[in-house]
Write a protein that binds this DNA or RNA. Structure first.
Lengths: 208, 208
DNA sequence: ATTCGTATCAAACACGTGTTTCACGATGGA
DNA sequence: TCCATCGTGAAACACGTGTTTGATACGAAT
């Protein structure tokens, strides 16, 4: 069970990812992670230095996946007109967010990072959020024929982002408000259609 | 300093409110609260039963203030047409939210409640959020001439709410993205104007 | 004057935390 | 075969936590 086989590190990292996402950094204990991963308490210290080192590694993984989401959104809009690029962005984002698939842990993790910011949040902002806003800003600016740094463009970007993010952020709240909500493809498509149309109309009005 | 004078309880409650809002329930210690309030550690146990009792009292206060915000938004739209009622709602909300005034602690508190839901969150949903959504739903339904429980109406309400909430929720993120942001009246009015126009256009498009 | 309930205080309690230490076994190269 | 290194294990360490306890002082009612 020991030796070259470095499965313990992987197992610990996996469990840590799930638990950190679910309850944040502070509310998860090293002991609990190791217990669920069938590893010794000292494993996290040996493989990751300390608890924070383990957390940083989990967060780095999250950043990689988020950058990948941005790239996919860009790719799906490739060659299309600006309004369809925006629709593609919303579509990719919602599919990745609402689907309780293998990526949902990321957004729970980000939720906790926003509630209790750590220095690592800066990395997320610089590497993920800023590129996304830049891309959306270019789209909006193209649609309304305004400079990308115009205030009105910035505000429209916020409006689009906020609608997308709301569907993931307020998850525990939304579940209480509409307990019969299902994340099937039909619902996702309907939300994509709504946010796209709603936003495109709003964007058009921003240019006067 | 002791006797009929019940200032300790008030002082503890005040400090607890500020600290719980800033760092959430778990990351604040009873000792720290009492130290800042110049009270003994046992004070919280005597006056509030235990730490959770103190937290519940803080959260109850928050619910009262939020209900008051809803009432004010309703009042400012009284007698106006539906689209101006919506503008009034956005205006009241943003003024209360963006202003770093005496109410900002509430939204930090809610942020932490959403990130780490406790049973008390149900109370917030039932007493604050549901009435707000009901009110906004009636406004939207009136504008687009659809039944209040129509899916399209519900989605528009979510779009409006998400834009308003985004300005308060992503505060630590927004501060990094646009560090030169100032919460003066001009900015608030500009955002109110943007969200109102953006949303009214989007709502109009929802009815086809 | 005595009694009772209120409000506060310092000290201690019981528990859980992240981290460290030291020892044991396995692995792979010299 | 020997030895250095790696991965793991159980136990202990140092610290911080919420909570409880017993004592003290004060004011008001009896």
């Amino acid at each position: 069970m020991s030796g070259k086989d470095g499965a313990t590190r992987t197992r610990v990292l996996g469990v840590a990812t799930r638990l950190f996402a679910g309850r944040g950094f502070e509310k998860v204990t090293v002991r609990e992670i190791c217990r669920e991963a069938n590893a010794n308490v000292a494993a996290v210290n040996y493989h990751f230095g300390d608890k924070m080192g383990l957390y940083r590694e989990v967060l780095d993984q999250a950043i990689q996946v988020m950058k990948c989401t941005t790239d996919q959104a860009r790719a799906e809009g490739e060659g299309k007109p600006a309004d369809e690029k925006l629709r593609a962005y919303v579509s990719v984002f919602l599919r990745r967010v609402i689907k309780q698939g293998r990526d949902s842990w990321i957004h729970q993790l980000m939720m906790h990072e926003i509630a209790d910011p750590t220095p690592a949040l800066d990395l997320v902002v610089d590497e993920v959020l800023r590129p996304r806003m830049k891309y959306l800003g270019e789209l909006v600016a193209g649609i309304v024929n305004l400079p990308v740094d115009d205030e009105r463009v910035l505000r429209c970007v916020m409006s689009v982002q906020s609608q997308c993010h709301a569907l993931m952020m307020a998850n525990p709240v939304a579940r209480k408000l509409t307990p019969d909500f299902t994340a099937d493809d039909g619902q996702i498509d309907a939300w994509t259609e709504h946010i796209s149309r709603f936003s495109l109309q709003g964007i058009a009005s921003a240019a006067r």
